[in-house]
Simulated scan of single mutants.
Amino acid sequence: MTEFWTEIYNFAQTTTTRIGIKLLTDYGQLEPDFKADGSLVTQADKWADREIQNAIYDHFPSHDVLTEEGSHVFSGAEWCWVIDPIDGTTNFTRGIPIWGISLGLVYQGMPIFGYVHFPNINQSFHGYWYGNSQSDRANGAFLNNIPIHTSKDNPSNNHFFNICARSTAILQSPIPCKIRMLGVTTYDFLSVANGAALGGVESTPKVWDLAAVWSIVQAAGGVFVNLGEEVPFPLQAGEDYGDRSYPTLVVSRPELISTFKPLVEFLGKR
């Protein structure tokens, strides 16, 4: 690992650990407010957002930030962090332990590094993704610094497929796995990366839900399938991503696209 990537990793680890320790004191204790889109936000979300932004600007003054609770406009900066200070705010407010802090690093509009820390369950995922090119930089995905890979299994009633609350209509489809609803976009997709699930679908994820896991899932062997007309990446300079959703399917390997996509692709047409 080069000195630059060591610095990136250490920053992400240190920052999310520090933020997570404070958030654990607020976990299950705060009353949320409603945002314009109906999602929840707490003072903890806003505090964590400010803390992460300030840390980024202090350590990487040439980098920009795009965040759920702050600026939604991509400036076109060569390096940009896309952050979700608490992914799974509903779980966080209701005392359900799966929620995380998500940091994605974007280079020229494309995610190439992701770090997601889940304080309550003591799991930290990170990964590097340089695409399928013959790069001298190695792709890699890790859980608590141990390499992870997607499952090579075939679907069965003993395997999992994750859905979100807005995609329950697919329960009428013959999904060839057990269904799970975890309530956290990043964890839905990361459970595919570490082999716990064979696939997952989210009907309304935003770029800050996808930026970190984009690198980790693909480095682990997983595949993103865009179900809508627009693709989330590369980010486009001057675009406001605040109200844009990207219906997304993730599967553990390319061969499963034909199994799951026909059952969920209607979510991209609603």
Score class of each variant (00 low, 15 high):
Glu7Cys: 08
His126Gly: 01
Glu230Arg: 12
Glu78Pro: 08
Pro155Lys: 05
Ser167Asn: 09
Gly109Asn: 09
Phe224Ile: 02
Gly228Ser: 13
Ala165Arg: 14
Asp240Arg: 03
Ser124Glu: 09
Trp47Thr: 03
Tyr9Cys: 01
Val250Glu: 09
Ala219Lys: 04
Ala237Lys: 14
Phe233Ile: 02
Asn162Met: 14
Lys35Ala: 11
Pro85Asp: 06
Ser167His: 07
Cys164Arg: 00
Phe233His: 06
Thr42Asp: 10
Gly140Asp: 11
Gly127Glu: 01
Ile121Arg: 02
Phe34Cys: 00
Tyr246Lys: 05
Pro147Met: 04
Ala141Leu: 03
Glu78Gln: 12
Asn145Phe: 09
Asn157Ile: 06
Trp214His: 15
His117Gly: 10
Arg137Trp: 13
Val250Thr: 08
Phe125Lys: 03
Pro97Asp: 08
Leu30Cys: 11
Ser156Lys: 04
Trp5Cys: 06
Val251Trp: 01
Cys177Glu: 08
Gly238Trp: 04
Asn91Pro: 03
Gly200Ile: 04
Glu31Arg: 14
Trp208Asn: 08
Gln218His: 13
Ile112Glu: 13
Val106Asp: 06
Asn157Asp: 14
Asn54Arg: 07
Pro147Lys: 08
Val82Cys: 04
Tyr187Ala: 08
Val207Cys: 00
Gln108Pro: 04
Ala44Asp: 12
Asp243Glu: 12
Asp153Gly: 00
Cys164Asn: 14
